Amino acid sequence: MVGWKRWSWALAGAFALHNAEEALTMRRFPVLAGRIDQAGRLDQGALNGLMAVISGLGAAAVAVGTTGRPSAWKPYLPAGVAGVMLLNVALPHVPAAVAARGYAPGLVTAVGLNLPIGVAVLRSAVREGAVSPRGLRRTMPVALGVLACAPLAVAAARAFSVGGSR
């Protein structure tokens, strides 16, 4: 049986792959790329940088949550990352694919990696007693809040984007 800590590290890797998929495919979708360009000229370099930073934050949350001296709150960091990833499947990716009647940037890794690995993190963390079901329910609104900050992250990337300074 794979423990919640190993699943958490697998999720950090899946999260990085997911962000890479989004960065590599976003520009191929004219509607999305046009909105990004018109709303502040987020160039490819800024998009790549944004995705790298977001991936690094996910990995940092997993690192803090799974290493060092044990603490009651630490397992909730990777659980929160898993919650963000699960919500990320349900909120933008699947509806975007339905609206596009096909592929949407990030869909393959969201459904193929983040969904099953995120579920495995949460199930194993609860099964092993690292997080309580009640604590997990309290973590999900925080995960939703983190996901809702995505537009702020894009705005910050635009501010540092070469094209956004024009």
Results as ranks from 00 to 15, higher is better:
125 A>C: 05
49 G>H: 06
126 V>Y: 05
132 S>I: 06
115 L>G: 01
14 A>Y: 02
153 A>N: 15
164 G>L: 05
88 N>A: 13
140 M>Y: 14
64 V>W: 04
28 R>T: 14
12 A>G: 01
39 A>W: 08
78 P>C: 14
44 Q>S: 11
65 G>P: 00
161 S>A: 14
15 F>M: 09
51 M>H: 12
117 I>Y: 00
123 R>G: 01
53 V>I: 15
149 C>R: 13
38 Q>I: 07
40 G>F: 08
124 S>D: 03
110 A>F: 05
120 A>D: 04
20 A>D: 01
83 G>Q: 05
140 M>H: 10
38 Q>M: 09
1 M>E: 12
40 G>Y: 09
126 V>F: 05
115 L>Q: 03
152 L>I: 02
6 R>A: 10
135 G>Q: 05
71 S>N: 08
140 M>F: 14
32 L>T: 11
145 G>S: 02
113 L>A: 10
158 R>Y: 03
146 V>D: 06
97 A>D: 12
87 L>M: 14
97 A>L: 09
39 A>K: 07
76 Y>D: 12
119 V>Q: 00
146 V>P: 01
143 A>Y: 02
22 E>F: 15
125 A>Y: 01
84 V>K: 07
124 S>W: 00
148 A>H: 11
118 G>I: 00
84 V>F: 14
145 G>M: 04
43 D>F: 02
116 P>A: 04
38 Q>V: 07
2 V>H: 03
21 E>V: 03
128 E>A: 13
21 E>D: 03
69 R>H: 08
